[in-house]
């Protein structure tokens, strides 16, 4: 409980700082300006996403099979992800992190965060994951339009996210309206595969 509270406090402080920054529009203390704070907020959002997304039953071997979050490419989070997921559980499932530079290593994950370092390979990555029920998340402009499911972006220095529900539907992923309500809805570009 103490550890949990500690995380909440840390998380809370981080969020508060972020909100303060975004509300008053402070130049030096915004999320974009301090990478650590930015990724703390992004890790918290990742956790919230997992809570409002429902995977098909076949994605989990057992009732308590953990939700695996994969990080593909250069990891911008460092230990922040583990700290954020520590002591958390969604529908009785724990959260574990798996890192790799090879997409093949992460095919068993439920969520894959595609790092900026993979911007060149987004098309290939998404294609290789076409038949899986993996939630792809990134922070690259046009990621959602290319067939990715969730993408972070900044609007007036506020962290926002876009969701491509059309891409999620064939994968059997159900995204809660609560989550959709908070996102900018995008569709797959005609040009994308």
């Amino acid at each position: 409980m103490n550890r949990t509270t500690g995380i909440f406090q840390r998380l809370g402080i981080g969020l508060l700082v972020f909100f303060a920054a975004s509300t008053w529009g402070g130049r030096s203390a915004n999320a974009q300006g301090t990478p650590t704070k930015e990724y703390q907020v992004k890790a918290a959002f990742l956790l919230n996403f997992v809570q409002y997304i429902e995977w098909p039953a076949a994605s989990f071997a057992k009732a308590d099979t953990p939700i695996t979050v994969g990080v593909l490419g250069a990891d911008p989070f460092g230990p922040i992800l583990e700290k954020t997921f520590q002591d958390e559980a969604v529908q009785g499932r724990k959260l574990v992190v798996k890192r790799s530079r090879q997409i093949e290593d992460l095919k068993s994950c439920h969520v894959i965060f595609v790092s900026k370092s993979e911007s060149e390979h987004v098309g290939n990555i998404l294609t290789s994951l076409n038949d899986s029920s993996i939630v792809t998340i990134s922070e690259l402009d046009g990621f959602a339009g290319s067939g990715g499911i969730i993408n972070f972006y900044f609007d007036d220095k506020k962290l926002r996210f876009e969701i491509n529900p059309t891409a999620a539907q064939p994968k059997g992923l159900k995204i809660s309206s609560q989550l959709l309500k908070r996102a900018k809805i995008v569709a797959t570009d005609k040009g994308a595969k």
Partner: peptide, 12 residues
């Protein structure tokens, strides 16, 4: 209100 509490932003 759960989502609003989870995201905890001004608009929430």
């Amino acid at each position: 209100s759960t989502a609003a509490l989870s995201f905890h932003r001004d608009e929430d």
